[in-house]
Amino acid sequence: MLGEFEYLLLTATASLGDNAYGAAIREEIESTTGRKCSIGALYTTIDRLEQKGLLKTWMGEATPQRGGRAKRMVRLTPAGVHAAKDFYDSVARISRRASWATQTPRARSAS
């Protein structure tokens, strides 16, 4: 089972497609969740997911807006897609009867 941040990273990577690399993933996570994402957390999690075989990384091209420095490109492996889907299904299943998921007036007033 993935951790929460691992799932966020896999999902951001999937959303970015061929443009998934360190800074872009960080920006995607920060803008979507509103939470700060440190370079340390990002890169150590990328390493861990790569070791688990859920991600593949390689050095990409350098661009002028990066001061001519190369990007570390990231792509999901089939195992990564499977793990993220499993996590999503589990969260969806367990949330089925939760008040914030059902959106009933009673549930909303209770929350």
Binding site: A23, I39, G40, Y43, A62, R66, R69, A70
Partner: peptide, 29 residues
């Protein structure tokens, strides 16, 4: 890794102090 991290920090517009702290935090992790 130095290349990729420095590039990301330049792209995200981090100042020198913040960039150094981020790098040290990564090394400690």
């Amino acid at each position: 890794e130095r290349e990729a991290v420095l590039g990301d920090l330049i792209e995200s517009g981090a100042g020198a102090r913040q960039a150094a702290l981020e790098i040290i935090s990564l090394a400690v992790r």
